[in-house]
C-alpha cells in the first residue's frame, strides 16, 4: 500500500443518498477515520455546512441532512486531510477478565496459547472505527490483519452484557445482553451505554481504547432493558 502524503487529498467517491445525503466512500478504513475526524474538526470550527448526522462506518462516512449535498461533494476531493493522529488523547481503559467461552477457539485460530491471546489483545492500541448494531456498540480496530477471526458458525441466542468479542478485523463489547455471533474472549463490568450519563456512550467513533487484564471476578452484569433485543445479529 502506498503511503499518502501527510495531509493530502484523499482518494474518495461521493455518492448521493436521497435528496439531502452523501455517502463518501474511501479506499481504506484509516482514510474513513481520517475523513471523519476532519469532518468533526470542521463542524466544531463552524466551517462545515449544517448537517444532521455524520455516520462513519467500515470504509465510508455518511452525511445526512445537508441542504446542498452536491456542493459538498464537489468540494471534498480538494480537502487536505491529515492522517488520524495517534495518541492525541488518552485511551479509555476497559478492565477485562479474559475468560470468555471462545478464548481457546481464538487461541487455536491464532495458533498461540490462551495466555498469548491475552498478551496480544491487551497489548493492542485500539480505536473505535464506528458504532452500530446497538446503542454504544463500537467496532474497534487495531489488531493486525492476520489476527482476524470468522464469526461463530452458529450465533448465540444470548450474549451477556459486557462480553468482549472478536469478529473479522473487529473487537466489540456488548453494551447489553443480546443475540450475537462474535467469538467471546472475556468480560468487563464497564458500563458501555448509560442514557443517564453524559456522554451516554463510553465509546464513540474515534475514541482510543485499551483493554486491561484483571484477575478479580467481574461483578454480575448489570441487566439491560427487559425489551427483546434487536433481531439483527451483531456484525
Amino acid at each position: 500500500m502506498t503511503p499518502r502524503p501527510a495531509a493530502g487529498p484523499l482518494p474518495l467517491r461521493a455518492l448521493p443518498v436521497g435528496e439531502h445525503g452523501l455517502l463518501v466512500e474511501l479506499d481504506r478504513a484509516e482514510d474513513a477515520g481520517a475523513l471523519h475526524a476532519e469532518l468533526l474538526r470542521r463542524a466544531a470550527g463552524g466551517t462545515l455546512p449544517a448537517v444532521r448526522e455524520i455516520v462513519p462506518a467500515a470504509r465510508t462516512v455518511f452525511l445526512d441532512g445537508l441542504a446542498d449535498p452536491g456542493a459538498l461533494a464537489a468540494e471534498l476531493p480538494g480537502w487536505r486531510v491529515p492522517p488520524p493522529a495517534a495518541g492525541d488523547r488518552p485511551a479509555v481503559e476497559i478492565p477485562v477478565r479474559y475468560d470468555g467461552p471462545d478464548l481457546a477457539e481464538v487461541a487455536a485460530l491464532w495458533g498461540v496459547t490462551a495466555e498469548e491471546v491475552v498478551r496480544l489483545h491487551a497489548g493492542t492500541a485500539f480505536r473505535v472505527a464506528f458504532c452500530g448494531f446497538a446503542p454504544g456498540f463500537g467496532y474497534l480496530t487495531g489488531l493486525p490483519e492476520r489476527l482476524g477471526v470468522p464469526r461463530r458458525a452458529t450465533p448465540r441466542t444470548r450474549v451477556p452484557a459486557g462480553s468482549i468479542g472478536l469478529a473479522g478485523p473487529y473487537t466489540g463489547v456488548y453494551p447489553r445482553s443480546s443475540p450475537g455471533g462474535w467469538q467471546l474472549i472475556g468480560r468487563t463490568d464497564a458500563v458501555l451505554w448509560d442514557p443517564r450519563r453524559e456522554p451516554a456512550a463510553l465509546l464513540a467513533p474515534g475514541t482510543p481504547v485499551r483493554f486491561v487484564p484483571v484477575d478479580a471476578p467481574v461483578p454480575a452484569p448489570r441487566t439491560g432493558p427487559s425489551r427483546p433485543a434487536p433481531q439483527e445479529s451483531a456484525r
Binding site: A57, F62, D64, F130
Partner: peptide, 29 residues
C-alpha cells in the same frame, strides 16, 4: 457491503431481493 450508514427512507435490499423501506426505528448501519 462492509457496514455503511443507512438513511431514513432507504430501500435496502436483503438477499431475498425484496426491498425494505427503512422507517424511523431503522438500524443506523
Amino acid at each position: 457491503l462492509p457496514s455503511e450508514g443507512m438513511p431514513l427512507g432507504a430501500l435496502q435490499v436483503p438477499p431475498n431481493g425484496l426491498p425494505v423501506l427503512f422507517l424511523h426505528d431503522h438500524p443506523t448501519t
